[in-house]
Amino acid sequence: MDTERRTPGQQVEQVRRFNRTVAEHVGVLHDQYLGGARPYGQARLLWEIGDTETHDVRSVRARHSGYISRLLRALEADGLVAVEPHPRDRRVRTVRLTDAGRTERAQLDARSQDLAGSLLHPLDPAQRTRLTAAMAEVERLLTASVVSVETLDPDHPDAVHCLRSYTAELGQLFDSGFDPDRTLLPDPGELRAPRGLFLLARLHGEPVGCGGLKLPADAPAEIKRLWISPQARGLGLARRLLSQLESRANDLGRKVVRLDTNRALEAATRLYRTSGYTEVPAFNDEPYAHHWFEKHLA
């Protein structure tokens, strides 16, 4: 049966079968993951911490569920990680691998490499290509499924981070550079209620994208500052943010949305055209715009 023809219940069952198969083949259900001395949770955390960096414990927790503290305590008791106060802020705790932790992590890496090879070895080249392509697609979709989107004040530090990253990237892409003071939206406050709103996307707690909606009283709603971090591209997040901005505009009684873009932003232009936007004559004198688009909302 084709995946597209499956009922929602059949799709859920397919996901459950896939999860069981993966868990069985990669050894998640074993008390000694990859033949080592500890279960999957502790072994996975060693990979997460990394072999050279020191991490804020809060950022590690943000990527996992609440049992992280117990895993950290177990690894610390075994001498594999060191949990210490941050040198500049003792309210913040950091975690790093010890020499013993780096040694065990290297052993896990080698065993994981061998396991991956053993899964591919029985397959012919065409099957290997199909399997790895399917794995890449599943990875993208699973990553996309854990991205969250929230409404945030444009002056929030995470919003400021995204807007600065947006500005820096445009400065590199545009032939003339990009000066935010020359645009028609120099004040992010215009993306704050009641004049507008600002959406921020997070992946594992980190800001990875944003988009704003300007709500002028005497003109259609306007989408501004749509940006996705390079690390989160390929997940369909730009289209998701665009759709949510349109939905918010519709909920607020706006039946038309507009946006403008620069000719250097080819991917963005393709996104707008394939999302139902029609190119229209210039509706503003934005100095960095070469294309103006409009969409009538259902």
Rank of each mutant, 00 (worst) to 15 (best):
T3W: 04
E4L: 12
R5V: 10
T7C: 01
T7D: 02
Q10N: 10
V12T: 02
V12G: 05
V12F: 02
Q14W: 11
R17P: 01
N19F: 08
T21M: 09
H25C: 06
V28Y: 13
L29F: 06
Y33H: 14
G36T: 08
G36P: 11
A37T: 15
R38S: 07
P39R: 07
Y40M: 08
A43T: 00
R44W: 03
L45M: 11
W47S: 13
I49Y: 00
I49G: 00
R58A: 13
S59C: 07
R61H: 15
A62E: 00
H64L: 12
L72W: 01
D78Q: 14
G79Q: 11
L80A: 03
A82H: 07
V83W: 07
E84P: 02
P85T: 09
P87A: 04
D89F: 02
R90V: 15
R91I: 06
R91Y: 09
V92Q: 14
R93L: 14
R93D: 12
V95R: 05
V95M: 15
A100V: 03
G101E: 00
A106N: 05
L108H: 06
A110Q: 15
A110M: 14
R111E: 06
R111D: 03
L115V: 12
L115I: 15
G117K: 14
H121K: 12
H121F: 05
D124Q: 14
P125S: 11
R130I: 03
T132P: 00
A133R: 08
E137V: 14
E137M: 14
T143S: 12
A144C: 10
S148V: 04
E150T: 14
T151M: 13
T151Q: 11
P154L: 06
D155H: 10
P157Q: 11
D158S: 09
A159S: 07
H161A: 15
L163V: 02
L163E: 01
R164W: 07
Y166G: 00
E169Y: 05
E169Q: 07
G171E: 08
D175A: 11
F178K: 13
D179K: 03
D179V: 08
P180S: 10
R182Q: 15
R182E: 10
T183L: 05
T183H: 06
L185K: 12
L185P: 04
L185Q: 14
P186D: 07
P188C: 09
A193C: 05
R195I: 03
R195V: 03
L197E: 11
L197G: 11
L199Q: 06
L199Y: 02
L199C: 14
G211C: 10
L213D: 01
L213R: 00
D218Y: 11
P220C: 10
P220M: 12
E222H: 09
R225N: 07
R225H: 03
L226H: 00
G234A: 04
G236D: 04
R240K: 08
L241W: 00
L242G: 03
N250Q: 10
L252F: 11
L252I: 07
R258Y: 02
D260Y: 02
L265T: 09
L265Y: 13
E266V: 08
T269W: 06
R270V: 05
L271H: 05
T274K: 15
S275P: 01
Y277S: 01
T278M: 08
T278N: 06
E279K: 02
A289E: 05
H290L: 13
H291G: 09
H291R: 13
W292M: 07
W292E: 09
E294N: 04
H296F: 04
L297M: 09
